[in-house]
Design a protein around this nucleic acid. Sequence first.
DNA 1: TCCTTTATCTGAACAATGTACAGATAGTAG
DNA 2: CTACTATCTGTACATTGTTCAGATAAAGGA
Lengths: 202, 202
Amino acid sequence: MTTARVRDQYHHGDLEVALITTARKFVKKNGLESLSLRQIAQEIGVSPSAAYHYYPDRNSLLAALGFSLFEELADYQERELAKVAGTSARAARERFRILGRTYFEWAINEPHFFNLMFSDFCLIESHKDQARLENRAYQTLIRCLDNLVDTGSIDKKLRASAELLSWSVVHGTTSLIVSGHLETEDFERALDGLELALGIRK
Amino acid sequence: MTTARVRDQYHHGDLEVALITTARKFVKKNGLESLSLRQIAQEIGVSPSAAYHYYPDRNSLLAALGFSLFEELADYQERELAKVAGTSARAARERFRILGRTYFEWAINEPHFFNLMFSDFCLIESHKDQARLENRAYQTLIRCLDNLVDTGSIDKKLRASAELLSWSVVHGTTSLIVSGHLETEDFERALDGLELALGIRK
DNA sequence: TCCTTTATCTGAACAATGTACAGATAGTAG
DNA sequence: CTACTATCTGTACATTGTTCAGATAAAGGA
């Protein structure tokens, strides 16, 4: 009976996570511009000023949501990567491809999330939690590239540049497609080109 | 005496461009989030509702500003490119480098502009003027890569992928640096890696 | 069990914003 | 000089983020 009495009570019980959850729902549907604290509060069934006990302002809520989305993306990527085990060259190449594809699909399926993650809102409290989140995805990429080196599938001369190139090609095409400057099919073309340029495929 | 009587008159005379000019000034300083139609109107010395004669809403004004910034960027790039003439391999490589660097510097110097250009606002009336603007920068890139092929500075096997790779690496690193996910120095490192991967430099 | 303290939320209020609309004003064409 | 049209004003309204004094509930100590 402790968890059931959530609504229509003076004390909500779990307002802090309810705020993010509801904000997530609104951003998913309508993007960040139209996100309203008052609508969120109304949806939860709480006063407009209740949110200010947990977040100093609207921007902070958006930032918190944004950072949680980085974790969601990393979770998704690791889940998909885990499906392809093995130490073969073929497996290493497929994991490299999956790493890029999951990033892209995440952005295509939830463009509003992608926009939030790389907006000014997720820049405020930078250089702290952010670096940790960043590392999680980055370490995955490094492991992936090391696998490719181990299986002799990548030009060793390019190993030092490969991380930055891979990340920027994947993020760059994704960003350009989401913002309507490239076509959806261009992503796979870019991945092909990247593998060619890195010597992963002949 | 026709151009002087601009302020404190019932008819402003050039409100349409004044709106964009003033909007430009505000976005440059404080970004898009805080841009207010009323502040713009006040700065120009005009009623809050005057803008609606030229733009149906706030988004349209931001879109118009955004598209004009694409032209500004293209102007800047072509101006800088023109400084390096010649058909030598060295000149071709330098132009390639300048093309990326101007894109990056533009974004670093005016991050708010960059954010607007690739925001949802500049996506509304897509597939029309946008394609034309896009082409202008894209044609410049193609000419640049053709020069590199002519001077034998680029791996012919990679020519087909080179456009997409170059554009996405430059835009990707720029976007990641502007949003605080990479360091400023990473841009030149990425360009080095790109030239290495494309066979432009050994 | 009662009382005090603390965390949590409400309610009313304020200034600022985007936008709509009826009307005023000024250039322009006849 | 008159009629017309483009341009801008003034007022109004709903909505927003945010503040702050106070109400309410939970927790802790006697």
